[in-house]
């Protein structure tokens, strides 16, 4: 079954900006799905339409078979959303925030109390349950929004930049947590600027740009489409100009560092052999950016402004 089915979705804002230009997207149940795109590509608008915060211009959206046109409340009951912007009541306590949200989804106070303990424990916020929203750190606010979104045990969890501004330790513990709830059956759609995050967590990916899906496949296939990677090589010997390697693009970064672009039909061994022949020894090597980031930049590269 499809957790999310979006067909020919169009959104034109009153000021004429066309945020979505006929988006088609399917996310199967149980998937961990990355929705990527540069700022202003239409990710948040798409999520806004699915969660009914944004009205669509045309097209259809179904969540687990429930159309947002004919069965909106049923569709919304399946979805938990963690928005990009912090949207908690700063004056309310952590505990009230999650139990109130549960009530909005029809959970009785008793059910909400039991679930609140589980969710806040999972997100390491139980000890802070009496604190008000304004007393929490940025990372805690993000975790609170995840706890809030999970209160009604949604079948589809949508996370819009959930780890923005969160330190690396908490980010990794959040990854672990998200992997666990996905393994337990919750479908997850994730938008993120940390492409490493998408590469680590997600099985499928869609890249949206200028309001259109420009790539949609499983993560491994998408990464295979990357035609070239750039490697940064550290050299033992100092160089004043970039060495010439036939068929390769080489750039000198500084005395002991060069960048080499290697396409899919080329071979790193040839690079090492060429450098060795030139009397240069490679001390260490790394990717200039992660592979998804490289592909992402290539797919969404903008034409220079006229």
């Amino acid at each position: 079954m499809l957790a999310l089915a979006v067909r020919n979705l169009v959104k034109t804002y009153p000021n004429g900006v066309q945020a979505l230009r006929g988006v088609d997207l399917e996310v199967p149940e149980g998937d961990f799905f990355a929705l990527l795109g540069p700022n202003g590509a239409g990710k948040t608008t798409l999520i806004g339409i699915v969660t009914s915060l944004v009205t669509k211009t045309s097209g259809t959206v179904e969540v687990f078979g429930s159309s947002i046109d004919t069965a909106l409340e049923q569709a919304k009951a399946h979805v938990g959303v963690v928005p990009q912007e912090i949207n908690i009541n700063y004056w309310d306590s952590v505990y009230n925030i999650v139990t109130t949200q549960a009530g909005f989804y029809g959970m009785t106070p008793r059910q909400a109390r039991e679930r609140a303990e589980a969710c806040l424990e999972q997100l390491q916020l139980w000890d802070r349950r009496r604190d008000s929203g304004r007393e929490l750190s940025g990372g805690m606010k993000r975790r609170l929004m995840i706890a809030r979104a999970l209160m009604h045990q949604p079948r589809l969890l949508i996370l819009d930049e959930p780890t923005a501004g969160v330190d690396i330790e908490i980010r990794r513990s959040m990854w672990e947590f998200l992997r666990e709830i996905n393994a337990a059956g919750t479908t997850i759609i994730l938008t993120t600027h940390y492409l490493e995050e998408a590469e680590n967590l997600c099985r499928h990916v869609a890249i949206i740009d200028h309001g259109q899906i420009v790539e949609r496949d499983d993560m491994a296939s998408v990464l295979r489409k990357l035609h070239a990677e750039t490697f940064v090589l550290n050299l033992r010997e100092a160089i004043s100009t970039a060495p010439v390697l036939s068929g390769y693009s080489v750039e000198r970064v500084h005395d002991h560092e060069i960048e080499v672009e290697v396409t899919k039909d080329q071979d790193l061994n040839e690079v090492f052999a060429g450098l060795s022949a030139a009397g240069l020894h490679v001390v260490s090597m790394r990717n200039k950016s992660n592979r998804l980031e490289e592909l992402f930049l290539r797919l969404t590269a903008r034409e220079p402004a006229e």
Binding site: L53, V79, E85, N87, N89, Y90, T100, F104
Partner: peptide, 17 residues
């Protein structure tokens, strides 16, 4: 206030009539 602080969205995303 709920609209300005955006926690009105708690209600709008929920299946409340």
């Amino acid at each position: 206030a709920a609209k300005m602080q955006r926690h009105l969205e708690e209600m709008l995303v929920a299946p409340m009539a």
